[in-house]
Each structure stands twice: as structure tokens, then as C-alpha cells.
Amino acid sequence: MRGPRAAAIVLLVLAASVLLATIGYPPGNNGVPGPALVPRVLGLALVLVGCLLVRTPGQGAVPRVRHHLAIPATILLLLLYALLWRVVPFGVLTGVILLTFLRLTGVRWTGATIAAVLMAAALQTLFERGLGVRF
């Protein structure tokens, strides 16, 4: 099961969660709808669209892509970047992440190291000195 059908099922689960979550919301009064109206309408609309998407034909396997190994590795790197955001100093973290990313995408050690160090230093200067951001 691929493509629209898998996404449609995720959307249907999301719609069901939205509808369930709004059960306890307060009702409206004097003809003015309460906070549940719009989420419920959207939840029902999502059910409808999800059902229609389930009926659309699924795609075949996603074709082999360029950097097919680097993409999941980059996603992991991004998660690691966010996880260590306040643990490791920004400049060091950015430099290491960039170096790893550039190596993953096929840049040679020398070029990757120079670029990572320069970019990390530039960003650290821009954010901390230029914009007064505290990491």
C-alpha cells in the first residue's frame, strides 16, 4: 500500500482523532457556534476527502532517487541537530552537522571541512553578534 492510499488512511485517522477530541468542547449559545464547530466541520470534510483519496489508484513503488541513502541520513541529522540544539554550542554543533551533511552528499573532506567551518562561523557571527540571539 503506497502513495495516496497510505496518506488517506493517515488523514482518516487524523479526522477521527479531531472529531473525538472535540466531544468535550463547550457548546455555542444564542445562535453563535462554539469552539467545536469549525474543527468538527473540518474533521468531517477530511473524512470525505480521505474516503475519496482511498478510492484513487495507488502509485507504484517510488522510483530510486538520487542521494537515496543521504536523504534518510539527513533526516536523522536534522533530528539530531534539533535534539542537541541547547546541549552543544551552536557554532560547534552547526559545524559538525554541516560537515557530516556535506560528506554524506559526496563533497570531499577538504572542501567539506572548509565550507562547514566557514558557514558555522558566519552563522554564529550573524545570529549572536548581528541579531543578538542567545543559544
Binding site: 552547526t94 551533511f101 552528499t105 558555522a120
Partner: peptide, 26 residues
């Protein structure tokens, strides 16, 4: 590759810088 790396780092740095919130990075 150089542009991709720059965009990724600037994107996350910029998201954080706005409210200095790790939640925005996530």
C-alpha cells in the same frame, strides 16, 4: 551541496532566532 547545507542551517537558525524557542526548531 553547499547551498543545501546553508539553507538547512539558516532555516533552523532562523526558526529558533524568532522566539529563541527550541519548540520552533522542532
Amino acid at each position: 551541496q553547499y547551498l543545501w547545507g546553508t539553507v538547512l542551517a539558516v532555516s533552523l537558525g532562523g526558526s529558533y532566532a524568532l522566539n529563541q524557542s527550541t519548540g520552533d526548531v522542532w
